[in-house]
Design a protein around this nucleic acid. Structure first.
Lengths: 401, 401
DNA sequence: CGACTTTTTCCATAACTCGAAATAAGAAGT
DNA sequence: ACTTCTTATTTCGAGTTATGGAAAAAGTCG
């Protein structure tokens, strides 16, 4: 924990002023002073420094009620930029973003056959090219990387990722020594829940994000802070056992939620139905080509009211609902967000799960619970990477250094 | 959030010094300065104040390696005291305790037939008498109360407790206005997990306490901070559903863990076995008197290797094990502690659950996981109440005031 | 145009930490 | 017993930062 010295009070006040401008701006110096309980002189000197560093700009006079017009200040998101990297199990996204998590430039590369340490090499190779682009005026704050799997964000190590075959890869150290910039590393689900809070429509301090894709993952925010657990392994929602008599999972447990409601589970149920000759609109949507059955097709079938899709959806919703009610009882969150390839835009699923929650969760815990669909677009993991960096850049903690 | 001013840095340094003496003392001023990165002069002035207030005492010279002997300082737990109140569903405990959570004086009253607002009156009545005891020299810091049920500790309100019939009782406000002292209020399980960390043998920042008694409860510590959730309703471990086809629980869910492994569930299974004529040592232990079947008897039967008790234990361990593995996957804790009437000293259960964990939890999450029995005695909830107060008294937070 | 308001800037002051020096007290060698 | 060295504590001046009040700047309103 930090000690108390003059640097501490100055950094704290600076951080309070900057975040207030970020969130409530445009705003005048005097309003900043009043709303934060800091004296006008202190605000003035903090603002002076922030302007010099390019984080804040004066945008001209505001309106007055009989006196000097205030000089309004706003956060300036474009004087600096950051590099966001989102690694998924199938592709790698690179982006240059501004301090409001807007994508300024983007590149995407499929990862196929690249495993283990080679993933880091693959990243470095493409990042080299991406970073040497011309015409970038603003200064770069650093690189923020999100990866699926178990990540020790404090040490910057990818501890464990089956599909990419990564095992104790010290990605942060590798990138920092190569590029001489500060590097952040975080689990992808964790990054997205931060992003939903900061840049989405879920500005809650106790927020849970649930992603249904080829696996099932979650990111959990408690008192504005990510739940990491001892090794960064918290939030393994997909390996919650929902059936003690179920099949053994690679994680060691039995009847894992993952094996009931991930895309793989849905896909195999569709295949079983198709091979047993059941009629479904999925056939028309794909022209009978099994390889063209993807989450989008399934969701389209749902929207069209296809019986098979609806049946599967019902089953998924039941399992998911039960698991989510357990989450609600354990965490008492303010809001729950559904996302991932299977969750996104899947209104049918959202509604079914909502019904389950209303029927089974404790009234006091669900009455004012917000339950909704992800509000970030397809760049969610890039925005997540940015959110991780920005939370650290603008946040204030007694723990650091 | 607090602003940065001179008071902040002084309070922070004072808090660092005091806690360092509390945890590492006896210790000299110079060692405090070195280990905290604070200058000797600052330490000296902080210590001077702490001595004046009675929190710290000089205990004489330590040993030297060729120079002036250091003056050792120790935490003085007896210059102040606090009042701890533990309300359970069946009785009320009052105690005067010192700042090391040692019980100095204790009283116990059965609560029978007292419900709702009357519980508060009952408390006040006995507390009046307890507080007017003679011979108390040290100054009283305040009153700390623990209650089962859903508690809004920030607002000091007992939101909800079925068995005591309490509903939105503003206990903190009531006691503060009557006694003119600061009052703390916390859920009982939460208080105990704090106590296990501070005064028990589980000094982990990420700790989960599980209590099996007439109900099933948990207290969860994340990064040294209690998990409260939005309304203080987090940690309702007993209402985790483990069987979607199970019986409906009063909480609204189905197949709650509570209905499988609480004392009520065990008791009813014993009764069923007895009435169906099964032979068991429980008969000998109770002389056939069903009303004398209590958790202690069941645990004694277990120790004696009674077949029925062992069978029930196996079943309980299976359910509990599955639920705990889910906890491990969600929280990735450093340590898990088992307590409560059914858990305490129940080595058979501990071992069975440990086996289940080793078989089903993800290796990376369980390898260095500590799983053990509660280390606090029967005063656990009183020590818990003290821990809640002391955490707030000695801890430092940017949030307060 | 003058009186009044509101915002911003400037400056002397107070509070606190820090580092160096002074003081205190004991250890070790002669 | 005396000197020298080592370590701990205290003292004091310097440095840093917030603060409150005064002054300046820039409006509004009649």
């Amino acid at each position: 924990m930090r000690k108390g010295d003059h640097r501490l009070i100055q950094e704290l006040n600076r951080s309070k002023v900057l975040n207030h401008i970020r969130r409530e701006g445009p705003i005048s110096r005097i309003a900043l002073a009043k709303q934060n309980g800091i004296s006008p002189s202190t605000v003035a000197s903090a603002v002076q420094e922030l302007i010099k560093e390019g984080y804040v700009s004066e945008i001209g006079p505001g309106s007055s009620s009989g006196g000097r017009k205030p000089i309004l200040l706003r956060f300036n998101p474009d004087h600096h930029h950051l590099i966001a990297v989102a690694i998924t199990n199938s592709r790698m996204l690179l982006a240059r973003m501004n301090l409001e998590a807007r994508v300024l430039a983007k590149a995407e590369y499929p990862i196929s056959g690249v495993k283990g340490e080679a993933v880091a090499e693959f990243l470095v190779e493409h990042l080299d090219r991406f970073l040497t682009e011309d015409g970038v005026q603003s200064t770069c704050i650093g690189i923020s990387v999100t990866v699926p799997g178990i990540v020790r964000s404090d040490e910057g190590i990818v501890l464990y990722n089956t599909k990419l075959g990564m095992n104790r890869v010290p990605l942060k150290r590798m990138l920092e020594s190569r590029y001489g910039m500060k590097v952040w590393l975080e689990n992808d689900m964790n990054s997205v829940v931060l992003a939903e809070r900061q840049f989405g429509k879920y500005a809650y301090a106790n927020l849970i994000y649930i992603s249904i894709g080829d696996g099932l993952g979650s990111g959990i925010l408690i008192n504005e802070t990510l739940l990491h657990g001892k090794h960064g392994g918290a939030g393994e929602f997909g390996h919650t056992s929902v059936n003690r008599g179920g099949v053994r999972c690679e994680c060691g447990n039995v009847g894992c939620l993952d094996s009931y409601i991930s895309w793989m589970a849905v896909y195999s149920r569709i295949l079983t139905a198709l091979t047993s000759g059941r009629t479904t609109q999925i056939n028309e949507l794909t022209g009978g080509d099994y390889t063209r059955i993807v989450p989008e097709v399934y969701k389209e079938a749902l929207r069209r009211g296809d019986r098979l899709a609806l049946d599967i959806n019902e089953e998924v919703a039941d399992h998911l609902g039960a698991a989510i009610v357990n989450l609600i009882n354990m965490f008492n969150p303010e809001a729950l967000v559904l996302g991932g390839e299977m969750g996104r835009d899947n209104e049918a699923l959202l509604e079914k799960v909502r019904l389950y929650i209303n029927k089974h969760a404790m009234p006091i815990l669900r009455e004012d619970l917000v339950f909704g669909m992800t509000s970030l677009g397809e760049d969610d993991k890039l925005i997540g990477a940015a959110a991780v960096l920005l939370q650290d850049l603008f946040g204030f903690s007694l723990m650091e250094s």
